[in-house]
Design a protein around this nucleic acid. Structure first.
Lengths: 158, 158
DNA sequence: ATGCCAGTTGACGTTTGCGTAAAGGGAATA
DNA sequence: TATTCCCTTTACGCAAACGTCAACTGGCAT
């Protein structure tokens, strides 16, 4: 099987805890913590943890999901669902539902981000314009007007 | 000034704490908490809080930012920045930097979401296909193969 | 053998974002 | 007057997600 050959190079590697930690910008403590929460189950060489390529993939998922604000418990479920290939139809339906809900949540979250980005860009534009006025008019009325302008926008589309 | 007239209708209203709480789907406790954290400064009628339209706008921002996972401290800063119209140029530059950083963060967060959505949709597709196989082959080899397929994808683009 | 580095397991501390009584004030309604 | 609301403050509690010791255990380089 040529398949096996293609795997052997990169997928046979193992990683130490601090190696993975550095790679993902987290602490070893975090990795042990995730393990304690049953999100990882690295092999052991005596006492020391040995992370497989597959473990690494799981960490990738964990880190990604975390950045998206998912609580560890939820991430764990997702991980479990990937891991549990021996599901029955009922379970799979539930899984499907969960995934669909996640999609919905992410989509609405993405919308929130779009909105926030618009707001921030408006603020940036305002600040840039304001800073572009060469002479520091240092005026009080000016800043008040500016504040009102921004506030007004907030109020309008709130 | 006709401007004043356009404001008087909707902007002169005030809100009670529970009114605002209901509107934003949060508890009065939360609003008091935000005030304790100096994110809101509603007027008082005796002891009871009276929220202006402008206060309401601030709550809007708080809620939005919270949904995006920003810690209250950060939200407070943003709020302060809006409120401080009497900034010096130096301050404004710092503000500008903060805003730009936020934009960058949101953008990368949005990308994370896109990625996660792709993953989830792949998972959904897989589950749907799997459930579509009319006969519950109930096979063990099947599920193992399915697991490997998914795992492989994870590993590939990790 | 000694020292250093990286690893291990608890156990406790910290921050965030409120929830949840506890104890009461003021106004309106029955 | 009594009950009912809505409001107030003060204060303790809590789950999540680690950080931070503390106390040990190897391995290997000198």
């Amino acid at each position: 099987m040529p398949d096996t050959a293609s795997l052997s190079i990169s997928e046979s590697r193992t990683y130490s805890i601090s190696e993975l930690a550095r790679e993902f910008g987290i602490t070893p403590r975090a990795l042990r913590f995730y393990e304690d929460k049953d999100m990882l189950h690295p092999a052991r060489d005596g006492m020391t943890r040995v992370y497989s390529h597959r473990d690494r993939a799981r960490v990738t998922i964990i880190v990604r999901m975390k950045r998206l604000g998912l609580p560890l418990a939820d991430i764990r479920e997702i991980l479990d669902l990937y891991g549990l290939g021996d599901n029955e139809r009922a379970q799979k339906r539930k899984t499907l539902e969960k995934f669909r809900n996640q999609v919905r949540e992410f989509e609405s979250q993405r919308e929130d981000i779009e909105v926030a980005l618009v707001e921030l860009r408006k603020g940036i534009e305002w600040l840039e314009d304001d800073l572009a006025k060469i002479g520091p008019s240092d005026d009080h009325a000016d800043s008040v007007a500016a504040y009102d302008a921004v506030a007004r926008k907030q109020l309008d589309d709130a």
